[in-house]
Amino acid sequence: MPSLSEIQTRFVTAIRDRDLPPPEDIVGRGGEAPERRFGIYRNNVHVSLVEALMGSYPVVQRLVGEEFFRGMARVYVGKALPRTPVLIRYGDDFADFIEDFEPARELGYLPDVARLEWAWNLAYHAADRDPVAPQALAAIPPERTGDLVFDLHPSLQIVSSPWPVQAIWETNTNDAEVRPVDLTSGGGDVLVLRPAYDVELRLLPSGGAAFIGALGDGLRLGEAYERAIAASADFDLAANLQGLIASGGIAGFGLADPVAGLDDPNAGTPDINNNGE
């Protein structure tokens, strides 16, 4: 008699390969070939996973239509089953898959829209933290601001794209009738954040992504400023930092020990209170 392990391997192999007949040890009511009965399992597995992807990627679905989406998702499911029973984590590389999916190649913006939707999902389910209040940094002595280090909010992510993915996302999420989006209007860096109940999307100013990325790497404010200026010469520190705090992107902060041996004691001390006006 085959072992439980062999029985289960045969069962899964036949579920995954639609061209195979049902396993030989599967019986229905009598001696019939239980194609339809076994088909219920094939169908349950694949349709339920396609529908899990529909739940995570509603904007992609709206853009391509349900029929196309189901076909595309069915190919994805055929390649990659979930790695855990936690389906909110299923589809993390769907954007990469779409990028290589030949029938969707003309829709150049589609993979980045999928990336934005996945970031939205991650933010939605991320750990809850209360953001710091906008005035929380007021107590930091001005000469120490360059040594500030930050805990970014656990839900914070940045999706960068040459396409106007935020505008595409907004109209396909909020409007019964989709507004036209000018695909040549340019892209940018979209900040994805859930400070409380709702996930919020915001287009970052110039250099903002490099700045927040550096803070996320644990760099001091002074070092993050250097990196942001290198990425974008017109980077505005005060506007970016205040914007980040105001949108709830900072969950905690502290002061790193002063850097020893700095030639210029003011090098790491940018003025964060200059509001640029």
């Binding site: 750990a127 809850d128 933290r129 209360d130 953001p131 710091v132 929380a136 280090v149 805990d151 969950a251 905690g252 902060f253 502290g254 002061l255 790193a256 020990d257």
Partner: peptide, 11 residues
Amino acid sequence: MTATAQTAKQS
């Protein structure tokens, strides 16, 4: 690094 000024640990 010193401890974060606001731990904000969700109870």
